[in-house]
Simulated scan of single mutants.
Amino acid sequence: MKEVIIYTDGACSHNPGPGGWAAVLLYGQHRREISGGERETTNNRMELMAVIESLKLLKEPCRVKLHSDSAYIVNCFQQKWYVKWIKNGWMTAGKKPVENKDLWQELLALCEEHEVEFIKVKGHSDVELNNRCDELARAAVPR
């Protein structure tokens, strides 16, 4: 399997409000930057969109090291929250509907195609590619 490194980030001006997402994908000597935005969204949705859109670009099953500063995403996979959500009919432990179910379902389907390792990075620190994603995501927020 090809090994791909991905950095992602989401941004939101007000929450909810206009938001942007971005990703930097690295494969060998290749580097690709992507971004997009929505007029009315949340920060968590933008974080999820960054991951989804980056994985959708992969043309074949890959081994992915995905770096994110989103505890929402990283904890979901590292602590397997999604297993309980599915078992409970997409309800949280507090018996409330899981927020962003549509995006979580899309992301889980993509994770079945690829071998994804989610790695937590500290946001707004000295991680160059995380900072680049933050810059791209903020620039993608619709004005």
Rank of each mutant, 00 (worst) to 15 (best):
V4E: 01
I5P: 05
I5V: 04
T8S: 01
G10Q: 08
H14M: 07
H14I: 10
P16W: 01
P18H: 04
P18N: 06
G28Y: 00
R32A: 13
E38A: 07
T41C: 09
T41G: 11
T42H: 11
M49E: 13
V51F: 07
I52M: 14
L55T: 08
K59V: 03
P61R: 04
K65D: 10
H67V: 04
D69V: 04
D69T: 05
D69K: 04
Y72F: 02
Y72R: 03
I73L: 05
V74F: 02
C76S: 02
F77T: 00
Q79L: 06
K80R: 02
V83W: 01
K84T: 15
I86F: 05
W90H: 07
M91P: 07
M91T: 13
A93N: 08
G94F: 11
K95H: 12
V98H: 14
W104Q: 07
L107C: 04
L108C: 03
E113H: 14
E115C: 07
F118N: 06
K120H: 10
D126N: 15
E128Y: 12
E128C: 11
C133A: 03
E135C: 11
L136G: 09
A137V: 06
A139Y: 10
A140Q: 10
A140W: 14
A140I: 10
P142E: 08
